[in-house]
């Protein structure tokens, strides 16, 4: 019993110090934003490796998720004779939930793990230390551009995911199952609200992008500089990102969609 309490206490203590280090790291990262904006090339390079390289997986996944939503939604809705609302169902679930959440989960798996591994390896091979000795702040030079790129890429990726998904639902619903095209789009437009649905979805994706990129960069920066340490850190990035995304999604949903 004592041991259990001790373990719990120790876990809490370690958790708090890690959170403290993470917060300090985040503040340092944010303080570098101005210097990165003065050198947009650094940002463009990272937008490439974070955004562009995640593009394909997001597009393909979005298409399939939308197509599956179209099929499943049709089978359920047609029982109630409400096939015309297929567009509403597909678009609302994508824009409110699946777009931000699934694309953030994919982002954590694709870009987040890559970031952790990259930063962790740079630490293990003394590149960060070496940079410091060359009087270059590794946080400003390496971390901040990646952080900004993640922050900017995530909402774009989520929007692409939702867009492609809605088109996928259109393909299946209208093309395959014969839902009326006018009904699909007009019901969607009538039911989805710009403020409540689209903007809230975008806010969600910005929050997820922030958290995922932060976790990924910090885990890499905080990794034990050995190959084992880096591989563990990479796993932690994916697991912690997933937990954070889903937990935050619940909180944000409760806050945003609570009153209707």
């Amino acid at each position: 019993m004592i041991e259990l309490l001790q373990y719990l206490g120790k876990t809490t203590r370690v958790g708090f110090t890690k959170l403290g280090r993470g917060t300090y790291f985040l503040l340092q990262t944010i303080s570098g934003i101005a210097s990165v904006l003065l050198r947009p090339r650094l940002l463009i390079n990272q937008m490439y490796s974070i955004g562009v390289l995640s593009f394909l997986i997001i597009i393909i996944s979005g298409l399939f998720v939308g197509m599956v939503l179209g099929l499943q939604g049709y089978y359920i809705l047609s029982d109630f004779g409400a096939e015309e609302t297929l567009g509403v169902m597909v678009a609302a679930s994508l824009v409110r939930e699946l777009g931000p959440v699934v694309s953030a989960l994919l982002f954590a798996g694709r870009a987040g793990s890559a970031l952790t591994a990259e930063i962790g390896l740079m630490k293990a091979t003394e590149q960060l230390s070496g940079m410091e000795m060359m009087a270059v702040d590794p946080i400003k030079r390496i971390i901040t551009p990646r952080f900004l790129a993640g922050l900017l890429s995530m909402p774009l990726l989520a929007a692409l995911f939702s867009t492609v998904g809605i088109l996928g639902g259109d393909m299946v619903g209208i093309g395959l199952l014969g839902v009326d095209e006018g009904a699909y789009w007009s019901q969607m437009q009538a039911k989805l609200d710009f403020q409540d649905d689209i903007i809230n979805g975008v806010i969600k994706s910005i929050v997820f992008g922030f958290v995922t990129t932060w976790i990924a960069l910090f885990e890499g920066y905080d990794a034990i500089p050995t190959s084992e340490g880096v591989s563990r850190a990479t796993t932690r990035t994916v697991v912690n990102s997933a937990f954070s995304i889903l937990g935050l999604d619940f909180i944000l949903t409760a806050l945003m969609f609570g009153d209707n």
Binding site: V95, L156, T163, V164, I166, Q189, L192, I198
Partner: peptide
Amino acid sequence: FVASGIVGLFFLALQVSN
């Protein structure tokens, strides 16, 4: 990538919502 992302956002704003 940035252009297609923005097109996506516009699509959601204008075609999908009201």
